[in-house]
Design a binder for these strands. Sequence first.
DNA 1: CTTGCAGTTGTTACCGCTAACATAGCGGTT
DNA 2: AACCGCTATGTTAGCGGTAACAACTGCAAG
Lengths: 343, 343
Amino acid sequence: MSKPYTADIRRTLTLRDVSEASGVSEMTVSRVLRGRGDVSEPTRLRVQEAARTLGYVPNRIAGALASQRVNLVGVIIPSLSNMVFPEVLTGVSEVLDDTGLQPVVGVTNYSPEREERVLYEMLSWRPSGVILAGLEHTDAARAMLAQAGIPVVEIMDIDGTPVDSAVGISHRRAGRQMAEAIIAAGYRNIAFLGTMMPDDHRARKRLEGFEDALSKVGLALVDREFYSGGSALLKGREMTEAVLTRSPNVDFLYYSNDMIGAGGLLYCLHKGLDVPGRIGLAGFNGVELLDGLPFKLATMDACRLEIGRRAAEVIAGKSQSDSKVTELFPTLQPGDTIRQGSL
Amino acid sequence: MSKPYTADIRRTLTLRDVSEASGVSEMTVSRVLRGRGDVSEPTRLRVQEAARTLGYVPNRIAGALASQRVNLVGVIIPSLSNMVFPEVLTGVSEVLDDTGLQPVVGVTNYSPEREERVLYEMLSWRPSGVILAGLEHTDAARAMLAQAGIPVVEIMDIDGTPVDSAVGISHRRAGRQMAEAIIAAGYRNIAFLGTMMPDDHRARKRLEGFEDALSKVGLALVDREFYSGGSALLKGREMTEAVLTRSPNVDFLYYSNDMIGAGGLLYCLHKGLDVPGRIGLAGFNGVELLDGLPFKLATMDACRLEIGRRAAEVIAGKSQSDSKVTELFPTLQPGDTIRQGSL
DNA sequence: CTTGCAGTTGTTACCGCTAACATAGCGGTT
DNA sequence: AACCGCTATGTTAGCGGTAACAACTGCAAG
C-alpha cells in the first residue's frame, strides 16, 4: 500500500510557476490561458510554451471563486441503467459542447431524499444551471432551487408546475392517446404491467391518463401486475406469464416501458400466440436498442434527445421559446403489435 | 425570455449571513456545518437552525480552495449507452457513498482526444482521484495523470502498463479462453463479428487472444465482419445475415459483445437454425438485461460491478491489495449456445 | 489566590485566481 | 515639447471559506 503518486515532491503548479518560467506577470499568464484581453503575439507564444512544458493545469476552483463564474451545469436524473437518461444526456452534451458549459451528472435512484442530497451537493459547487428530471421534489429541494438564483429546467414531464421552467411531454396525454389507439383497434380486455415504484411519477401519470381514456368508453383494466428491480426483459416475461395465466381472456398488454414490453413480446411469440390478432402489446419509450427484435413493439417515443437539447438550450440562454414550459409531442408508433384497421 | 430566477434580489448567502443570523463568528458556523471541532450543543443548534431557515448552501468552491481538499473523484468512461459502464459506476458509487467522496462522470465516446480534454477539465477541479477506462491514452493525458499527484486507477483492462494502478481483467486471456471452449466443443469454422472502432482496445485484445488460441491448434477465422454505430441488436442481426450468406459453412459466431450477439441469436432462431448444433454463438459481457431471452447466449462476464468497487476502494485508500495491479477473473458462462460435451 | 487545563469561540492569514484599475511605452498631432 | 490615445502589461484587492493559532471562560487542583 505504498503511495508515491508523484515521483517529484514539488507541490502542484500555480500561475506563479508559469509566470516565472515565462518572465511575465501572473495576470498576463492568466489572460493568455483564458484567451482574454490583449496580449502581444510573442508573449502569448512564450507563455503557452511555458505552460505546456511545465504541464500546467489551471485551478478552476480558484478561478471560479475569483470570477464568480462556474462553467458547470448540474443534471440530475433518476437512473443510468434504462437507456432513456443516457439519451437525454447525449442531447444535453450536444448543445452544451458549443457553449463552454459542462454537464455534471447526479443520479437519484428514484429517491426524493437522494435527489435532495444530490441537489445540495451540486448547488454547493454553484453551477450555472440545473436540469433535473420530473416536477416532483421535496419541499427543501424546491426551496433550494428557488433560492439558487440560476436557471432551472425540469425535464421529461410537464403535467404540473415547474419551479422555473420545464421541457417535456404530457405523460397523461401519452397514456390517453395509447388507450384510444388500443380501443380503436378493437381490443377490450386490457391489462397493465409496469413499475411499482411510487416515485416513478411519469409512469403513474401515463397509467392515470390511460385509465381515464378507458373509463371514458366504459372500460376498465382487466388486470394489472407490478414489479420492481431485476432484469427488465426477464421481468416482462414473468409478469406476462403471470397475467396470461391469471386472466386468460386478456387481449391487450400495456407495459409501462419498452423493455418489459419486449420481454412480454418474446414470451408471447415463444408461446406461439397470435400477435397482434389474439393479443396486442404496447410499451413506452421507443428504445432504439430493440430495433433488432423480430417484431416491432408498439410504442411512443418520449422525445428524449430533443428534451435534452431543449433543456440545454434554455440553460445556455439559446432557447427560442419565451414560454417557461416547452411541450413536446411524442408520436405513436404502432409497430407490429397492434391490429391495423379498427375491429 | 424573462429570467427573474430569484424572486428576491439579494445576493447568494455566505457564512457571514448565517453568522449574523445566529450571533456567532463565521468560523464557528463553519465548524458546525462541517461537524468539526468542539462546539457546544446550544450554539450548534442555534447555528443549524439559522442555516436551515436561511436556506444556506455552503460554497464548496471557497471551501475547497481554503482547505486544499476536494471530495470529487473523476470517472472517465468511453460511453454511457452500452450498459457496461453504468454498471461500473454503480460499483464505484456504492463504495464511495460511505466515504464522503463523490464521483463525477466524464464521457469520451472512445476518442483519445476527447479523453484528453475531459481529463484536463477534471483535473482543473483538483479531484482527489481519477478512475479511467483503459490503459491507452495520449501522451499528454498520461503526463497530466502523472503530474496530478493523486491516485489514478485505470480500469477494465490489465494488459499493459498502468500510470499508477489498474483494476480489470485480461481481455487477451478472455478471448483465448473463449476460443479454447469453442474448439473443445468441436466447432471448426469460426467467424468473428464485432466493433470496428480502432479505439476499442479491449475488443481488439480479445480478438487477438482469440485468434492466438485458434492458431495454436492450426485454425484461423473463416470470416469476419465489422460495424460501428447503430442499434446493436439490429446490427447483430444484419451482420449475422451477411456472414451466413457469404460463408454458409460457418459453424460458430464469436461476437465482440452480448448485444450484437443477442441480435445474431434472434436471427438464427428466427431462421430456424439448430443452435447450438448446427451453429454456435458467443458474446462477451454477461448483460443482465438479456436474461429474458428465450435462449441464453454464451458469454463471459466482465466483472463490471466488482471492477467499479475495487477501483473506488483504491481511491478511497480502502484497498486490501498492496499490488498496483488487481486482476479479476471472468467466468465463462456457456449458456445454451455452445454444444455441451466435446464433439 | 494562583495556576493549569480542557472546552469553546474568535482572529488572522492565506488558498490561487481574476476584475478593475493603474501604469508604461510609443507613435502621431499640434 | 507637450499632449493625446492606444496597446500591452502590472498592481491591488478581494472571492468565501478554512487551518492554525490565540484568547477567553469556568472550574479543579495546588
